[in-house]
């Protein structure tokens, strides 16, 4: 299926910082209200569900899968971790069992020399979990193909005076014969700036299919988010080759994370998970390409 979220994303990023939201902010006010005022009915009988959050990448490192449960809407505790699960990953060549990570409960890790291979399909199997608390153990499965990604040829940092922030430009070539999906993440001097799914840049390849990508990856560093770029800073960009399913999930997360209003927002829904048996979250396999730039502030046209 041909998605065009990239354009949507580009345009709506423009628009978000542009006139429409500016106008809305002039005529709207926001205040906190109580759950009773919002007619929230707190159902004590809601059954917890398993949440899977795991990634296998082409980096050689310790990969992890975090298992947790859904929590009460108004809970201020950390979400319950799922302990004692049996977690395996099978890439079609070997099956490995992940070890519980002793520092963080609910996290299961691979050996430190593990890495994903492009073209293989990674299958996750989670057993010995009783999420709904009915005394019977459940099994959950997820699959993700590990897509290839071309190298990042170079990275450049520009300043956008209308957004009052910095954009990261990426140069890479794009394979023409396949329909590809990308995620982007950035860091400044080793500190990850896009440390949530809702902050990742995502795109399909419709606008660049088969050509050179020269893309402001819709990652904006804004001073108000404590992201200030100075002369000499090292800005690193990671480009991920992701599956369409993961793209759809990320798209859903980004739709859910923003401010919702009757003009731009559809009815809310859970981002589409790839885990079976009614679980939430996503198990993703993807390839990583990275490059960096040293910021030359003299190039910024203020």
């Amino acid at each position: 299926m041909n998605f065009s979220q990239s354009i949507y994303k580009v345009v709506f990023t423009s628009v978000r910082f542009g006139v429409l939201f500016g106008l809305l902010s002039l005529i709207s006010c926001t205040e906190e209200i109580s759950p009773e005022d919002a007619n929230v009915q707190r159902d004590k009988d809601i059954v917890p569900k398993l949440v899977v959050d795991g990634r296998v990448t082409t980096d050689t490192t310790t990969h992890w899968v975090r298992l947790s449960l859904t929590a009460d809407l108004f809970s201020t505790q950390k979400v319950p971790a799922v302990l004692d699960a049996v977690v395996t990953i099978d890439d079609g060549y070997e099956e490995i069992e992940l070890e519980p990570y002793d520092q963080v409960p609910g996290v299961y890790v691979t050996p430190a020399d593990y890495y994903g291979v492009p073209g293989r399909t990674y299958s996750l199997l989670v057993r010995n979990v009783d999420a709904d608390g009915d005394g019977e153990m459940e099994e959950y499965r997820a699959q993700s193909e590990l897509k290839r990604v071309n190298p990042v040829d170079s990275v450049d940092v520009g300043y956008n005076k209308h957004w009052g922030g910095w954009t990261v430009l990426l140069y890479a070539s794009e394979p023409g014969e396949t329909e590809d999906f990308y995620g982007f993440s950035t860091s400044i001097n080793g500190k990850v700036a896009t440390n949530a799914y809702s902050k990742w840049g995502i795109t399909d390849d419709r606008l660049f299919n088969g050509s050179t990508i020269r893309l402001p990856v819709a990652v904006v560093f804004l001073p108000e988010e404590d992201h200030v770029v100075k002369d000499g800073d090292i800005v690193e960009l990671e480009m991920y080759g992701i599956t369409e399913d993961f793209f759809t999930f990320l798209w859903g997360v980004q739709r859910e994370a923003g401010f919702k209003n009757p003009m731009f927002s559809a009815p809310p829904a859970n981002p589409k998970s790839n885990v079976s048996n009614g679980a939430l979250g996503f198990f993703a396999a993807y390839s990583v390409a990275r490059n960096h730039a040293v910021v030359d502030a003299s190039k910024f046209k203020k």
Binding site: I46, D53, S68, D72, V79, V192, N195, S198, P267, A269
Partner: peptide, 18 residues
Amino acid sequence: TIPVDSYVVGGNPFDPIN
């Protein structure tokens, strides 16, 4: 449509910031 529960995704247990 209102939410009924909450959950957490997208973190990195090895990243001290988030």
